[in-house]
Design a binder for these strands. Sequence first.
RNA 1: GCGGGUGUGGCGGAAUGGUAGACGCCGGGGACUUAAAAUCCCCUGAGCUUUGCUCGUGCCGGUUCGAGUCCGGCCACCCGCACCA
Length: 835
Amino acid sequence: MTDIRFDPSQADGRWQRAWDEARCFEADSNSDKPKSYVLEMFPYPSGRIHIGHVRNYTMGDVLARYKRMTGHEVLHPMGWDAFGMPAENAAMEKGVHPAGWTYENIATMKAQLQRLGFALDWSREFATCDPEYYGHEQALFIDLYEAGLVYRRKSAVNWDPVDQTVLANEQVIDGRGWRSGAVVEKRQLDQWFLKITAFAEDLLAGLGSLDDWPEKVRLMQENWIGKSQGLQFRFDLSNGETIEVYTTRPDTIFGASFVAVAPDHPIAQQVAMGNCDAAKFIEQCKRGGTTAAELETAEKLGFDTGIGARHPFTGEYLPVYIANFVLMEYGTGAIMAVPGHDQRDFDFATKYGLPIVRVVAASAEAADAPLTEAEAGDGVLVNSGFLDGMNVADAKRAVIDRAQSEGWGEGKTVWRLRDWGISRQRYWGTPIPFIHCEACGVVPVPKDQLPVTLPEDVDFKTPGNPLVRHPTWKHVDCPKCGAAATRETDTLDTFVNSSWYFLRFASQPADQPFDAAEVAKWMPVDQYIGGIEHAILHLLYARFWTRALAHIGKLDVKEPFASLFTQGMVTHETYRAGDGSWLSPGEVRKNGEDWIRISDGQPVTAGRVEKMSKSKKNVVDPDEIIARYGADAVRWFMLSDSPPERDLPWSEAGIEGCGRFVQRLWRLVQQYDANATGEDKALARKTHQAVAAVADHIEALAFNKAVAKIYELTSAAEKAAPSADRSRAIRTVLLLASPMMPHLAEEGWRALGESGLVANAGWPEVDPALLVEDEVTIAVQVKGKLRDTLTVAKGLPQPELEALALASEKVQRAIDGAPVRKVIVVPDRLVNIVA
RNA sequence: GCGGGUGUGGCGGAAUGGUAGACGCCGGGGACUUAAAAUCCCCUGAGCUUUGCUCGUGCCGGUUCGAGUCCGGCCACCCGCACCA
């Protein structure tokens, strides 16, 4: 009672140690409580924790702590997605070893997370670069290989000739390597692939069962998988050959007025050999930009090959063009073009004066209505021979049936999804556990020789993959025939590491990747929380791995994440000096209505509220704010105000307000009197209502609303006179706030005379009888406009309510003598008088 | 272009078709203090002829006794994908 301020600088660490010593948050796989697996996307150890991590992990933490309080056995683990390019970049730039750099970052970031007091099971921590982890990954990879889900083929890669390395598409900027600036070459290399397309149908269908995923993410995945159904068929060409095209609109076949092939289509290449204009045109197409803006404005261009394609129904010959808008990677790289019903074909036909024929119309009478643009909608087939009069769906089926019975085409499903290329010509990744033998070919490393570990004595001074030029590492004997052989020097895409880590968190036997029975107890993850940037790749790959492992009998779940939540970013206002340079929040201050630079008083322009980024200097450092306000205030801020799926604007005033509330709650706890007597029925009601509301809000992840309810109960308890109910209210508010402000809650729990940890306390019970009010405020409207309010006993019968409302002076004035035509009474809510 | 989302005070945001603006921030006034910090109390959508009235949830219309909420049509901004046949 003497020290009225709560001091996080000494309390935070003390309670963090107490939880540690009590091993509060270690999950027990043998518990018979209902399980709850709460998982946030594990971080890449880039160096320091970002404020976005703080928000992400705070949300998960509140849920995890709440679930513990409501009697669940909670698995809430943390680890490190530790392989990746930044470690190699650091090695090249600073001469440090990727492993050393990574593990140092992990130590730093772990300490940062611990300062926030997260209820994490650190006993299960691992980094994906630990040989124990990636060794198991290698074993799983071999299992998938043996099940036929892994294969090798030649594939084009972006090759940086200076850095001697393969670049991801994002690392190629304007055709040049992002680091070296060298012009990137396309090279054909033997690459490893995972057969994700074998699960395309299932991955698509599975989306339907993910009711607790954001609609947006499901749609993004659906588009990515990109299923389309149509007809693949052959045109006989005037030069005696045939060409395969694919269409999703076989119904419009009578409207086809030309055929178009991609510039890299074999036919285009063949034409180019004998025709230098064609060759020039193809060159020109390749020079075209690939950025979104360029594509949008790109003009449709074509080159008439002079070849004709015989229409399977009319026998007419259609011209074959090479066209810049046709993609080799999709379908067959060739299309039948129907200008009347496809906008791209329409634009092209208009430019080159090709026929535009209507074959779908609103009605048979509108068969010759002019087309001013392509019409893609449904309707009745016209100008289409035997299809006339059919609707689009029937016509599609009819054409496919004819093509199949006559043998010139077949119904086909085409996917946008490609197999997953997982070869990376890099050092800092999971070595692909295979050996190349001249006699035996590709041979998996025997499992008893796993893990294939990375050599430590590597240098990054010379460009290229250190695994390739290491003097000894790759030289091994073939496990099959014993002859001299070489190891695969590619490593696995880092997305593989994050495709099964949640299984390893659930079960960590030494001799296998996971124990199926133990995993079955924890999976699926009940709540997964992370950024929207992983909406497609990570989540799709994890869904694929789970299916693939189920396919080979290692698992019994298909969908790894039952419920997904994507949180918004933390944003901050930006500041610029007169010369346009960015200024950090610490360099500026508000001067009346304006902003000025602290150092010289010069005016500063306050700009948009944007995602925090180092380049714009609008960042805040979690360590600094924790040191200044304590972990609880920071956590509270992360949950307040903005709904969790939306962006959260960071503000100095906001965090100060949170700091004030921490102290306010602390002062309230000091007023707790275990011996207080007497009732306060109204406060008791508010208390119980708050317990129910906060629980509902946390379960819905509506943390901002939960926070508002805690504020309300706090205010009510502050204002109340001492009573037994007030003491209960104070105790309750502390429990409700404990998932959000665990340190203050522990300190307060002691102040209340409790000896255990609030981390082990139960969620307060709710008395349903106290959830309902005995008095209600009734709105009294006249013609829908509020004129008065009445406070009456709950459940007052309609006639009495009506009489009370009509007796109101304000109501009578509003009616002004007009006859009452109708009275609408909503019990316990309102009376509306229509006069 | 396609798909999705969002529009409510000075700001972040609440609101099962039923009292719009909960809660927080900012701001204003007051109390305490020699003073400040801290804390506490009050006010705080706009306007007006201020016991009260009118207007007000991006815009236009509709349904309804009653619309921020439902329906139709627009507008703006944000995000994702993008020449996918």
